[in-house]
Design a protein around this nucleic acid. Structure first.
Lengths: 330, 330
DNA sequence: GTGAAAGCGCTAACAG
DNA sequence: CTGTTAGCGCTTTCAC
C-alpha cells in the first residue's frame, strides 16, 4: 500500500541505504555501475524520495517560498518565469496563495512553517514594518512593487523608463501634442507621471496631465476631457491598460478615429490589451528578467554575496494598433 | 539564529516535550491551565511547529495536493474557494503550478513527493490513461473538465444547463429567433450546443447553430453571418465570453444596436465580461460549489465513504447590459 | 496529567 | 567505494 522507502531500494539493489541516498542526491561516492544498479532498483519499485524527510534531514531546506495573488494574472507569468529560473539552481519553489479570504500574513506564515530559506513576495501589500520584521529572520525579496523597508530587497520595473518609452515612441511617430492620463494614487502612478513629464520637457514640449485613475471608467472620463478641451492633442499615454481601454472605447464612440486622429498607449500589457479588437499599444514588464533577478538576489542574500538591494528592470514597448504616425491634417 | 523547537518551549513552560505536542495539536490530555501556560511560552519564544517534521511523524500527511494553471484566471478563483473550504477540515492544501514551461506531470509529481493524500486537479489535460494510473495510487479529483478515466472522480459545471439558462433568459425577454455561435471542438462546446438546441426545441423553436470557435476573431466572423444572413435574429447565445466580445464589437461597428436590436449572452463570466464598457450578460460557473464538492469528494474517497463519482454543478446567469426585451419593431 | 522511548524516511559524518 | 551511527523535529504509544 505505502510507497517504497529507501530501505526497500537498498535491499533490492543489494546495497546499504546510505549508498542509495548518495545515488539519489547524486553525491560523490558511488561507481557508475552501482549508481545504475541502484537507479534501476528504484525505478522497478517506483521509488521516489520522500520530500518531507529529505527536507527534515538536511540542515538547509533549499526551499524558496513564493507568495502570489490568485487574482493577479501577471503573477501567473512571474511564477512560470520563477520556475524556469529555479531550474538551474539547487533550490525548489514552494507556492502560497494570497486571496481575498486568505491574508498575505497567512500565506507567508505557511511558507515559514515549511522552513523556506528565503521569501519572494509578488506585489506585497504588507506594511513596511511587517516586511522589515520578516526580513530580520530570512531574506525577503519584494517583486514588482516599490516598497521601502529595511533589509528587504526589491526587484521591480522601471516605471519612469516605461513612461519615457511610451513618449519616445510617440515622438518618433511625429506627435508633438501628447497628453498623459494620470493614475492617481495607484502604485506606480507617480513614477509614470514623472517619467512622462521629464520625457516631454526633454523634447521641448509642454506636459499636460489629465486626472484619471486605474479603472475603465476613469479612462472614459478622461476621454471626455480630451474631446472637449484638447482638440489639439494627437496622442495620449495612459496610466494603465484598463484605463486606456475605457478611453479607447469612449473615443471610438466619438467622431475621432483611433489611431488616425488619436494615438493611445496603455501600460501593463494585460491580456485584454492583446485582444484583437482592442489591439492596444502598451508597455510590458520584463517578466523573465524580474524573475531571474528576484532569484539571483535571493541566492546572493543566502550566500552573503554582495548584491544590489534594489534592482530596476526596464520595460519594453509592445507596438500594436492604437498608435500611428501623426496624420498630415493634424 | 535557528527557530525555537518544541524542546525549547517545553523547557520554558517547565513541561515535557510530549505535552507541548499535545497542546499544539490540541489533542486531549492537557488541562486548560497547562494548555495556556504552554501556549504562552510558545508565543514568547515565537515558536511555530515545523511543518515538515509534523508531516513526517504523522502516519497521514493530511495534505491535499492541488494543481492549477497559472494562465487560467478561473483557477485562481477556484484556489481561493478551495482554501476557504479546506478551512473547516483538518486538511491542508499544497499548491503546484502548471505552466507552459512546467508540465502537468511535473506538477503532480512534486505533489506526490510531498505525500499528498489526494490530488485535486484543476482543468487537467492529462490523458485518460495517465489519470487512471494516478488514481490507482491515491484519490484523484478532476475539476472543471469532463474527463472519463476509471477511478477518477469528476466535479464540473453542467454546461448543458448553462446553455439552457441562457436560452430561457432570452425566451423570458420575448425573443423567438435565437441563434447559437458554436465553440467547435473546444471542451464544453458540444454540451453547450446540445443544451441550446434542446432548450429551443422544447420552446417549439428552430435552433440555428453558426460556426464559431473560442477566440474573439471567431466571434467577429460569426457577426458577419448574423448581419448578412440572419436579419431576423433578435438574440444570440455564444460559446464563450471571448467569442461573444468579438461578436459584440463587430455588431457595435454595424448599424445594429446592442441590446436594442440584438441581445448577446456569453459564457464563463470572465473579468473582461464585467468591464463596464463591455458589460456582457453571461453564464457563471459556481466556483464555491465546485470547490466545496471537490473537497467533499476527496475526503469521502479518503475515508471510503460512499460518494457520487461525478458531480455536476448548475451554473448561474449573470444579467448585464447586452440583453434586453425584444423591441417592438423586431 | 506527565515523561520516556521508539520511529517517520531521509541526510551527513565517519570509520572500514 | 561501503556500511554504521547519529540525528532532523515532530507524533504516538505506553507506562507512571
Amino acid at each position: 500500500m505505502s510507497r517504497p522507502t529507501m530501505e526497500d531500494v537498498a535491499a533490492r539493489a543489494g546495497v546499504s541505504r546510505a549508498l542509495v541516498s548518495i545515488v539519489y542526491r547524486d553525491a560523490p561516492g558511488a561507481s557508475d555501475a552501482t549508481r545504475a544498479r541502484v537507479l534501476a532498483a528504484g525505478e522497478a519499485l517506483g521509488y521516489r524520495p520522500d520530500h518531507r524527510a529529505r527536507l527534515l534531514g538536511r540542515t538547509r531546506t533549499r526551499l524558496l517560498g513564493v507568495t502570489f495573488d490568485v487574482q493577479h494574472p501577471f503573477h501567473g507569468d512571474l511564477i512560470e518565469a520563477l520556475y524556469s529560473a529555479a531550474e538551474s539552481t539547487e533550490y525548489d519553489l514552494a507556492l502560497s496563495a494570497v486571496a481575498p479570504s486568505r491574508a498575505e500574513t497567512r500565506a507567508v506564515q505557511s511558507l515559514l512553517d515549511y522552513r523556506c530559506e528565503a521569501l519572494i513576495l509578488l506585489g506585497p501589500r504588507l506594511s513596511r514594518a511587517a516586511l522589515a520584521d520578516l526580513a530580520t529572520h530570512q531574506p525577503v525579496i519584494a517583486v514588482a512593487r516599490k516598497v521601502k523597508a529595511t533589509g528587504v530587497d526589491v526587484v521591480r520595473t522601471d516605471d519612469a523608463a516605461g513612461a519615457r518609452l511610451a513618449v519616445e515612441h510617440l515622438l518618433a511617430l511625429g506627435h508633438r501634442s501628447i497628453l498623459h492620463v494620470d493614475g492617481g494614487k495607484s502604485p506606480g502612478a507617480a513614477e509614470r507621471r514623472t517619467g512622462y513629464k521629464s520625457a516631454l520637457r526633454r523634447a521641448g514640449l509642454r506636459p499636460v496631465v489629465l486626472p484619471g485613475g486605474p479603472t475603465e471608467d476613469d479612462g472614459a472620463r478622461a476621454a471626455k476631457f480630451i474631446l472637449d478641451d484638447h482638440p489639439e492633442a494627437t496622442a495620449v499615454t495612459v496610466f494603465n491598460d484598463r484605463s486606456a481601454v475605457g478611453l479607447l472605447d469612449a473615443i471610438r464612440q466619438s467622431p475621432r478615429e483611433v489611431p488616425t486622429d488619436l494615438s493611445i498607449i496603455g501600460y501593463d500589457n494585460t491580456s485584454t490589451a492583446a485582444l484583437s479588437h482592442i489591439n492596444l499599444t502598451t508597455i510590458a514588464q520584463n517578466t523573465p528578467a524580474l524573475a531571474t533577478e528576484a532569484l539571483t538576489t535571493a541566492l546572493a542574500r543566502l550566500t552573503d554575496t554582495p548584491h544590489t538591494p534594489t534592482t530596476v528592470i526596464p520595460p519594453t514597448l509592445i507596438p500594436r494598433g492604437t498608435t500611428a504616425p501623426r496624420s498630415a491634417q493634424s
